[in-house]
Design a protein around this nucleic acid. Structure first.
Lengths: 196, 196
DNA sequence: AATATACAAACGAACGGCTGTTAGTAGAGC
DNA sequence: GCTCTACTAACAGCCGTTCGTTTGTATATT
């Protein structure tokens, strides 16, 4: 069973999810139609349903893949013995790199997750809240042992997570500075105001 | 003629635009239907067209109202004789306050402007680019006379403008710190890393 | 004061078009 | 011959919007 590989590197479903990611990023989940998607894949709309169950399933795949990657990295960093300020920096750098390498799915997950329906909607929403709370926890730990100046941790999380979204603009701007340069600049600006 | 005031404080069109703002913010422009909007206003969908020309006109009103307010404030600050770093801080504070007071329309304009169609789409897009360039200009001026440390100005603009969007989460979170407190926290975090 | 005129604003019905999705079927590759 | 995948055709439902008409009300005329 399942020799349904497409071309060279994955199942047809994966090809569809990738095309959906690009399309959803460009038009938004609601505005992107299954017929648009079919055209992008090079097939009729009905044919998509040999590989997927529904339009929403595509959004689920995207959202939870992104969520899992972030949660996994978070575990790794949280369990390390870095000082708190370095943990924050590491998470920030990971966010920035994900935004460089997989920005389309990161943006779709961040912008269109509200179009999920329960139980996926609640699940994702809860994960999102939990993630922010954990991140704020690291910052508060840093404040507690004087690595980080006493700022409101949830505010810092708010700023950091949203600031990274700005990289979307960078992706389609003409005169790009290098990725490394942008990363270092962002980290500098965002963490310099934190240090005690 | 034209005593078509609704209830006490504005034309019916204004009432519709306000309801549309709330609805678009909640569901997104594409996902919000004219029948949804009609119900929110307390009227049949067809009746809306006695007051507006199209669904897109509503989006136009929202987007350009927001754009005009920001551009106006920008002129005022740019023409002042504040030091560059203070101009940046003033703009940042204005963004934050707009986000507190009119966050629904600010968010709709920022998230759904892509659903405008030409010529409004190009117009808005150009204003957006110009705004960011002007803001970067202020920062570069500050770098030139050593008020601001030598960072990449477009990156700072990216971060600042997106960071402010985080206030949306604050609006619907349970345990709010005060608006003033959040504003000061954001300004501190965002500007401390900039000072030379 | 009663009636006629004018017009804004509401309505139900309907439009063509697009939506996500299903059914049934034909062909390709093992 | 069996499985997988593509197709065409069609579905029910929602979309923004238009139509013709009725309702409500403020003003002008008698």
């Amino acid at each position: 069973m399942a020799k349904i590989k497409s071309k060279n590197n994955g199942t047809k479903k994966e090809v569809i999810v990738e095309a959906a990611t690009r399309l959803f990023r460009e038009k938004g989940f609601k505005a992107a139609s299954m017929r648009d998607l079919a055209e992008a894949v090079g097939v009729e709309a009905a044919s998509l349903y040999n590989h997927i169950q529904s339009k929403e399933e595509l959004l689920q795949e995207i959202c939870f893949k992104v969520a899992n990657e972030f949660n996994q990295k978070f575990d790794e960093i949280e369990n390390s013995d870095l000082p708190s300020i370095k943990k924050v920096e590491a998470m920030l750098r990971f966010h920035i790199r994900q935004m460089f390498q997989h920005y389309e799915m990161v943006i779709v997950a961040d912008r269109d997750w509200r179009h999920l329906s329960d139980p996926y909607l609640s699940n994702f929403h809860n994960q999102r809240r939990a993630y922010r709370k954990r991140l704020a926890g690291i910052i508060e730990a840093g404040i507690a042992n004087n690595e980080i100046k006493p700022v409101d941790a949830p505010t810092v999380v708010l700023i950091m997570l949203h600031a990274v979204n700005g990289i979307e603009s960078w992706h389609r701007s003409r005169e790009k500075i290098s990725a490394k340069q942008l990363e270092d600049n962002m980290v500098l600006i965002m963490t310099e105001g934190l240090k005690a």
